[in-house]
Design a protein around this nucleic acid. Sequence first.
DNA 1: TGTTAAAGCTGATGCAAGTCATTTTTTTTA
DNA 2: TAAAAAAAATGACTTGCATCAGCTTTAACA
Lengths: 253, 253
Amino acid sequence: MTCISFNNHIYLVILLGSQKGRLMLDKSYKNVTCSTCLVRRDSLFANFCDNDTEHLNAHKTCSYYKKNQSLFLDGSFPRGVYCLNKGKVKIYTRGDGGKEHIIHIAKEGEVVGFRSMFGGEPYSMSAETLEESNICFISKDDFLNMIDTNPILRNGVMKELSKELSDRALALTNMAQKSVRERLAFSLVLLEDIYAGEEINLSREDMANFVGTATETLIRLLKEFKDDGIIDIHVRKLQILDEVGLRKIAGIH
Amino acid sequence: MTCISFNNHIYLVILLGSQKGRLMLDKSYKNVTCSTCLVRRDSLFANFCDNDTEHLNAHKTCSYYKKNQSLFLDGSFPRGVYCLNKGKVKIYTRGDGGKEHIIHIAKEGEVVGFRSMFGGEPYSMSAETLEESNICFISKDDFLNMIDTNPILRNGVMKELSKELSDRALALTNMAQKSVRERLAFSLVLLEDIYAGEEINLSREDMANFVGTATETLIRLLKEFKDDGIIDIHVRKLQILDEVGLRKIAGIH
DNA sequence: TGTTAAAGCTGATGCAAGTCATTTTTTTTA
DNA sequence: TAAAAAAAATGACTTGCATCAGCTTTAACA
């Protein structure tokens, strides 16, 4: 049994029965403190002064989520926002027939759940962890209060909203005009960033729902990319070997 | 020659040579006043107090735009925002190869051009009139100043941004999962609202770029809908006869 | 450790929708 | 008013990708 430390947390590498050793999050999540949280520097709460950080810390609660656990569901009303300390979360809608479409995959440092908060409407999307995660929660009242009193946060939120709006316009144009092959390449470039050098670890079904295609088609195309030496596949984990080639296929200049 | 009045403006119906009579905007646009502007009640500037409205009026300039005139282009930096007093504007991106994709069609009362203003980045989209229009302009400095000092406007903007974000997620899911036939039905329901009872007046190419399909496919499907009695077509203008039927095809409940 | 379930993969087939070429209609311009 | 240009419409052809069905591998669990 080995201990390693990463991102504010201590992980235990343990052997579970006949299973291969895997990374389990230590349940020490209660110790997360905003002032020392490393992922905060990428978040909406970056650039906070000490006072604001302390206030944030005092109003957040931190929880452990296991894999495939829901944060919120389409149709429910926002109760607060979720700041990802560790782990990844998929944001998805369901089309007619219930088929998932993954709009976004949030990574460490991202704040999830505030986008539907300003209209007074229920969520139009659902959120669910893709792996075990540590996630801090700030209640709606506290968050809205901070928005009103903190111009840094407010500007950050508005900047984030408009950035996502243009990202999503690009995604829409890609979906309308690009082939599945091109979209897969595009998605892999996005995933490379989301998984930040780690191997991409998504089920084929989730990946297909992210690209917007059938699972079988995705598998066939992944195989093509592998044969072309653009990616490498280890069981279900995926590594990008030739990002330049991918960008070329995706049509990113 | 006849005069009619509508929406703050006087129109002249005039006969031009051998052409059929058509509606021309009177150039009296300079007379538009925010306090009496009827379309303002649907805009971001609704709910303004008299003081704010007066301030707005003092800082706007109003211009006449002819059909197919550009408001701003992808890559340029925002100089201000555009409030549509009369006319429609398409917001579009271009995919690889330069093919347009129409993200949104703005109608009277909508404010265009502020979404890219908060990130300090250039526009990722272009905007162009679809018909002759009267459009008021507020400079970036004036608008940002109003955002900072006017909570009503600020909340309206944030509400609008998050609403559009969820609209666009729905559009993305539709694009990923629905057939062209279903998407066309969906788009026609949207257009029915945008044209507010008037006949839908778009070129086949624009409509195809809005639905996300080839022009030929769009034409064939329109013909099917016409044969099924769902729509009626007069040359290039289009009228919806059976919105319930359309919603059913589109999968809107 | 063996059994069951889930996820991943492969092959065969059909069709929705894109592309190209041509004609017809409408609009614009001289 | 005629000629030219642009937009709309139709037909023929091709193909990317979804669907279905069956098989294999990996993970879950008693």
